[in-house]
Design a binder for these strands. Structure first.
Lengths: 109, 109
DNA sequence: TCTATATTTCGAAACATGTCGAATTGTTTA
DNA sequence: TAAACAATTCGACATGTTTCGAAATATAGA
């Protein structure tokens, strides 16, 4: 059994590309539960936000936000599900696990 | 003490940007010691390569390789030091540690 | 000093990205 | 059904990225 990651190179590159934009990284951090305004960091506490609530933290046009969310979703970093008028966003835990392994491959051997 | 990462958002975005290109990610993986040709994965075994040796794995022009190495270096992901005619490249362990914390912040609390 | 080897810098072309406003789609409530 | 709210799609523009070849720089050895 190999930990070899080279075959997945393009997929990991796409994941890092999704995190390479400050706005997208901020979105991902918010969903990761890091530094919710008014709280101390409760890391590992994944938090759901609807698109509109995310927008209140970001100072970008709704269309731009939508574009960034699509990129995060396409990369597998977040899941988006409609609930009534709103669309809820959440970290995809499986992809988070894969990225952790990428940087810390010995830890799961 | 807070694990808050928001102040470092732009820096992390720059790190992920450096890893967002398949060629750069392959360079970083080679230096990380993952999947050296002819070996099984010996992860955590950071490996040094000179620029020319990296180029033999990549099928890109030397000038392009040089550009990518500069990006990885600027992001703090690798260190480059000249040794005679050659320039040796190696993973910067501190930045690797910071990225690990980004995805696994509870682990060091 | 001259030559060979290793790497970088420069300039240009092709391509991708981030951003917005306007228009559109989906959903709930009056 | 009509209006209001939430989010997305589309088209356009400015900016940034990837790539190369040619030229320049750095080092070692004859």
């Amino acid at each position: 059994m190999s930990n070899c990651l080279l075959p997945d190179m393009d997929r990991y590159a796409a994941v890092f590309n999704a995190l390479s934009n400050p706005h997208r990284l901020q979105i991902y951090s918010l969903l990761s539960g890091c530094c919710t305004p008014g709280t101390t960091c409760e890391l590992g506490t994944l938090t759901d936000y609807c698109v509109g609530d995310l927008g209140e933290h970001l100072d970008i046009a709704p269309s731009t936000l939508s574009h960034h969310l699509k990129e995060l979703s396409n990369a597998g970093l977040i899941d988006m599900t409609r609930q009534g008028k709103q669309v809820m966003c959440a970290v995809n835990p499986q992809t988070l696990g894969e990225v952790r392994e990428f940087f810390n491959p010995a830890a799961h051997a």
